[in-house]
Design a protein around this nucleic acid. Sequence first.
DNA 1: TTTAGGG
DNA 2: CCCTAAA
Length: 713
Amino acid sequence: MRDMKLKKRLDCGPHGFHVAIIPKAPRSIRRRVHPKKTDEDGQVCAFELLASLARQILQEETESSSASSNASGNDHAAIGKDAVEDGRQYEDKPVKTECLDQGSCEVSAVVTESASLNCDQKCLLNEFPLAEDDDILERTLKTTGSNSSGKIGGDLKSEICKSNMLKGNFLSKVEGGSPNYRESCSNSVENAFEQLVETKAKETGGLKMATTRISKEDPTELCMTFPASTDSDKDVNLPSCRDPVPNASFSRHRNDIKLGIRDDNDNLSRFNKFSNKLKVYRPVTRIGDRRIRKLLTSKYWKSAPKLKDFEHPRTDGGMRPSHRKRKTCYNHEKCHRDVLYKRRRFYDRSSVETFDGGFSCESVTNSPEKGRNGDKCISGSILQANGMTSSVKGHQSSLRSKDSNVKFSIKSFKVPEIFIEVSETATVGSLKRTVMNAVTAILGGGIRVGVLMHGKKVRDDNRTLSQTGLASEDNLDTLGFTLDPSSVEAPAPPLVCPEDPPLLLSNAPQLVARSLETPALDSECPNALTDLALLTKTETLVESNHEQAISHTDILTESTLPDSRALVAVPALNVEALAVVPLNQKSRRSDIAQRRTRRPFSVSEVEALVQAVEELGTGRWRDVKLRSFEDADHRTYVDLKDKWKTLVHTARIAPQQRRGEPVPQELLDRVLDAHSYWSQHQAKQQGKHQAAGVLKIEAPTDHPNGATTGNQL
DNA sequence: TTTAGGG
DNA sequence: CCCTAAA
């Protein structure tokens, strides 16, 4: 039985983020926001909702009758398909539909969440409702756009699709300066959209808000805004505003719908306080995302609470040299592993640190927002977890808003690397569960938010952004946020080492160390999983090089692979951008050194080893390997040599002192004998090994060295 | 890449 | 098992 290992980097993206960021909302709202749905259902619903929304808007506009634009959330469902149909009528083409289906919407889908630091309530009010509205609006927009101009719609569509298909494109666009798909799309569409929205907005508060935001700002970008002067702790602190639960729901909602655009400037204004906006950016892969979302969602909730404790867990310290080179083992190794245990090796041996590294994945991107009307929006920096860094560069110029607020947009947080090992025979479902558990374990452990600048953690929570340099354009580029284990001291979740991969639930991937062998396995075992692993690796590498990680690797499912790949490719496109963010590099490196899983030699192996050494001598480990362990992929000649070394040692010590699986004394005796023999003949034997073998076998006692060893023989 | 040894 | 200096 072979075990397959997946090394995966989950990108929580928006999800994770959400959790962290989102403010509390009344339960009622939450519920409302998300009727519970399956992913697919969700999509459908989303679609429907969108359609319905669009429809309503259109109708209203057309008729100039007031509609319940609010429709928001509650009613969407009711409207359902009919709405959609209507929408189509308006539309010259099913563009909308396609987009949705394809998930193209996702591209555009950027969700912004605003939270006011101090105002949970506000958050409650705005956030969720807004979210819904926004989604709706957005959809509406799209729809509207389609209606407005068929051409446009077409273009839009293509754009979107493209985006989905190729992240690269998407990124490029972003980089160009418009993170939003909208931009890429024709402006006309937007305008039309805006108009519609605004019109409607008046009718309903919710819409209005949405409208305003949209019109004023680029929906895509968003983040938190706060005065530069404020203390990083307070202002920046996302956690303060968030409520796990709401987030979860929110994210979910978002996921289903895919659209999320929000600017909450208005909200901010209302509250007079600084509000942080978080925008989650989420490129979606059709399938993968959903699943991931699903999996992750629940977890985030848990984590969310902990997020509140905003702290900088540790400093940049995370750097560790990773020793990977060793994957050298024999590549030809087969995947023979029954159960592999993985362990992650931390160079510093600190689990925490390691963990940390994995966690901190987000990258920050700054994007300039144009505040048409909104001052707040004027400058924005966006943090991206994805690879979208490009936008950062392009926009760096305007990071600072006039009002001295600094805006941060965090597109997503990544989940730390997770190593998963599953039996080849495990079901996909079990794999999913395993991943879920891993993620859960991580999140469940609690996480903290860390702020990185130039790759270093900013530990002083009391300094202001200005003091810290976070208010500076130059630094925003290098700004990053990390999710770190909340309790350094409480490595509870992470430390666990899952021994039995097969046990789906039991595994705690976080801590799991990855065995060095994994690489070998990957290469050797061709299968979806393997590919995945490879993919993941690639991704990792990329990430390591650039901050941008590819955020979404949908590891969970085979089906996701394609997407993942696409994602992976993306980063390359934005090399430049990537370079910009050094943050992750450090953190990344730190994570992955691992030690191979330990695999005690069985008696039979020992016997084989002894046999081989008796014949070949002790200086020819490679030959020993070839002769007796050719098929033991996990045994390298170095391993054999080491084993021999230990055997000799073992043979020399008292039986009571021996540990592990007892080796028959007979073998130990042979070990000593052979060792003595070869020790004496080192030089000579080199040329004679062949003969030696014969001698050995035929007449062990004949060996010259007999004196030393001979007694036994 | 292998060996040989120390860690 | 890991890591390396040497070969």
